[in-house]
Amino acid sequence: MKGLLVSGFTAIGTGTGAMLTLHAEAGLDPMHSVISEYAFHAGGWLLPASLTLFAIGSALIAEAVRRAGMSRWAVALLLGWGASMFMIGAFPTDRPGVPLSLSGGIHRYAAFAAFLMMPLVGLLLARAEIRYAKAMRILSGLALGALLLVVIPYVVRMAGIPLADDDIPAGLTQRVVVVTELGVLALAGLSLLKPSARRSQVSAVLA
């Protein structure tokens, strides 16, 4: 169990480092530039690398959650989040101003699926009242609120109202979602390092 968690944290930490390096090198405005745009810069390869590491970390923590006897739904959603992260990196979005392509469509809907799944993981695990349950609820709530702010501009555009990312803090809301969801993932792993996350305490609530 400990080996799984340490490996998972290492993957997540390395992926976070790669993401921060990409942000520092690209020099885009994080308030308005969405993360996907970083793929078009010289160090753009760091984006899929980072997302792949997040996917690996999620899979390792999912296995630890499974071994702890927690909800199979939580395990499935963690694996789904990791698969979505991988697809986001494998299928890049379209450049600004270009019509939506198949790759761009897969990228968009994989991102929405991922953004929706991790808060559900946090709420499921928090129901068991494991360690950090309160923090998980707060982060999951923040992630869902920020996700709503991410989705609204797309709904507005579908209604025929032109709205550019420069007109709204699109980059900020997206980053809030990513940071809070990584926080939920990290807390899920950390909770299993403590005795309070033993099978006997969680299986009756979530199995």
Rank of each mutant, 00 (worst) to 15 (best):
29 D>C: 09
89 G>M: 02
120 L>I: 07
51 L>D: 00
58 S>Q: 13
29 D>I: 06
102 L>A: 13
8 G>F: 01
205 V>M: 10
32 H>K: 14
89 G>W: 00
95 R>H: 06
17 G>P: 07
58 S>H: 12
182 L>K: 13
46 L>Y: 04
69 G>H: 04
207 A>Q: 14
170 A>L: 09
131 R>A: 09
161 I>A: 11
113 A>R: 00
23 H>P: 01
108 R>D: 05
7 S>K: 11
197 A>F: 06
56 I>P: 05
82 G>T: 04
145 G>M: 05
85 M>N: 09
18 A>T: 06
121 V>M: 07
157 R>W: 14
193 L>C: 10
23 H>S: 10
79 L>K: 09
83 A>W: 02
16 T>S: 15
6 V>M: 14
169 P>R: 11
38 Y>Q: 01
36 S>N: 03
56 I>E: 04
78 L>V: 05
116 L>G: 01
159 A>D: 14
186 A>E: 13
168 I>S: 05
199 R>I: 05
97 G>N: 03
144 L>E: 00
133 A>T: 07
184 V>C: 10
157 R>A: 10
64 A>R: 09
6 V>F: 15
105 G>K: 07
68 A>E: 06
8 G>V: 05
177 V>T: 01
16 T>Q: 14
93 T>E: 03
115 F>V: 00
192 L>V: 09
201 Q>M: 12
121 V>Y: 11
147 L>G: 00
23 H>M: 15
54 F>L: 12
101 S>W: 04
182 L>V: 12
60 L>A: 06
69 G>N: 08
124 L>I: 15
2 K>P: 03
117 M>K: 01
132 Y>I: 11
76 A>F: 08
76 A>N: 08
29 D>E: 12
185 L>R: 04
25 E>G: 07
68 A>C: 04
110 A>V: 02
93 T>F: 01
205 V>R: 08
106 I>S: 02
152 I>N: 01
157 R>N: 11
89 G>C: 03
131 R>I: 10
6 V>N: 10
52 T>N: 04
20 L>P: 06
190 L>R: 13
60 L>Q: 05
163 L>R: 03
198 R>I: 05
24 A>S: 10
21 T>R: 08
116 L>C: 05
37 E>S: 00
31 M>K: 11
27 G>A: 11
126 A>L: 06
45 W>V: 12
53 L>P: 09
83 A>C: 07
164 A>M: 11
92 P>A: 02
3 G>W: 14
67 R>P: 01
38 Y>F: 07
